[in-house]
């Protein structure tokens, strides 16, 4: 399945406090978290983001805390995927676990301008900039992570294995 959407651009080192401030962490309701998505980076973001839009950011996206609320807030806000020059480790892991598509590509992060429309192919990692007629390649996922994603995320993967009696 390909993803297609308009982009919103952010800078380097977007931290998890900017993605979902700690004052909202006592809830784990995705819809409630979505109302505050990226609020401390751009207070109008929760209002203006449209389903399928794509976040584009610089290096170290999602740095800071281990809160899984961060990718959940982004996904629940309707964001289709995040493209970044690089991701902080725990965010990367959490995003894969909950099924938020992420694309690591310094080239795409640099070239895409806010408002560009992009088409993404999670299977191949290609990022096509429809507005500019350019194509960029994201770092491919290791095979194990592709299996996780194909299984529908970590929960589905573990549930399947538990059912089979293994772990």
């Amino acid at each position: 399945m390909k993803l297609y959407g308009k982009t919103w651009k952010f800078g380097n080192d977007v931290d998890t406090d900017a993605i979902i401030p700690a004052r909202y962490l006592s809830t784990s309701d995705p819809a409630e978290l979505a109302k505050h998505c990226m609020e401390d980076a751009d207070p109008s973001f929760p209002q203006k983001v449209q389903p399928g839009d794509i976040i584009v950011a610089g290096k170290n996206f999602g740095c800071g805390s281990s809160r899984e609320h961060a990718p959940i807030a982004i996904k629940a806000a309707g964001v289709g995927a995040v493209i970044a020059a690089s991701f902080a480790r725990i965010f990367y892991r959490n995003a894969i676990n909950i099924g938020l598509p992420i694309f690591e590509s310094p080239e795409a992060a640099e070239a895409i301008q806010e408002g560009d429309v992009v088409q993404l192919d999670p299977a191949t990692g290609t990022v096509h900039n429809v507005s500019r007629g350019e194509t960029y390649q994201a770092t491919p996922f290791p095979e194990f992570m592709r299996k996780l994603m194909e299984a529908g995320g970590l929960m589905a993967y573990v549930a399947e294995r538990v059912k089979k009696g293994g772990a």
Binding site: S28, G64, S65, S66, R67, E68, I90, R93, N94, N97, I98, G153, L154, M155, V158, R161, V162, A167
Partner: peptide, 30 residues
């Protein structure tokens, strides 16, 4: 479920932080 779990390296442990889904999977499987 805390990013500062790296602290335990000072005691010679392999300490690392994870999110909720990873920890839930650990509760189920160890």
């Amino acid at each position: 479920t805390d990013s500062h779990t790296t602290t335990h390296g000072a005691l010679g442990a392999f300490g690392t932080g994870v999110g909720a889904t990873d920890l839930a999977a650990i509760l189920a499987t160890g």
